[in-house]
Amino acid sequence: MTKVRKFVLLPLLLVFSMIFGVATFTAVAETDIRYADAPFISPRSTSEKIYYTNRIEKLSNETDGKCPRYRQLTNMTNACGTVAGTTIVGFYDKYFPNLIPNWVSYYEASGLYRLQDTTYVPAVMNELYTLMRTNVDDVGVSENDFKTGLQTYVNNRGHNLTYTSVRNWLGKLNFDECKAALDQNKVIALLTKAGEVYDISMYDGYDAIDPITISGAHIMVAYGYYQVEYYNANGLFRTDTYLKVATGRSPQSLAYYKIDSNNLNAAYIVNIY
């Protein structure tokens, strides 16, 4: 091998090894992440207020009927994976009624999803809790246990399930892919590190943004998106883009997740058919 080739190939090989090593390490580290009970912390001080002279909702859409707002059962611990899985099952039950036997997950008159009952939804939760091996190897669930458990439940009901990642190699959410999936009435499972979601209240002349800190790794279900532009006398001064999420918690069952949050472990379009 000539010296020139050596000088070119060796550094390339080194860089490739480094990237591959980092990627492998990252993948291994992420599979070790456990999703468990994470307190939701609301700040005591008043919200951030964004005053504007004009406000434009550039993008806004939700899945049909929004999303079920299920919450964890009392007899369960570290069950955010279970609740997210049940939420996804409840969402698709509208289209495949045997996913939750003997129960209709939505109101036929409005198409909106029902709050959970005390029999049929808990039955799904209990089954998923076991299928996902919650608290078996460690607290909560791993990403793999969450995905495998949910897939097994769906398969056992005679249906198929696919996961499509919408997180790029830099760890960022691919918003365009998310938007396309949500427009096609597919929900997205978000697996996050500790971070924030938001409660947005829209008033006359300003929006109030209340951050809610999720203090540990958590799994949520995205069912919509929302992008807003704020203007003042100087023109456009701020643009915020969110996914609308079902948190799996009560009383803050619905919230907004900023797409540029730097706490995403994984995100999957969940398609049941």
Binding site: F40, I41, R44, T46, S201
Partner: peptide
């Protein structure tokens, strides 16, 4: 309660 801070508005 923290989750009720929204009512401060």
């Amino acid at each position: 309660v923290d989750v009720l801070n929204k009512w401060n508005n």
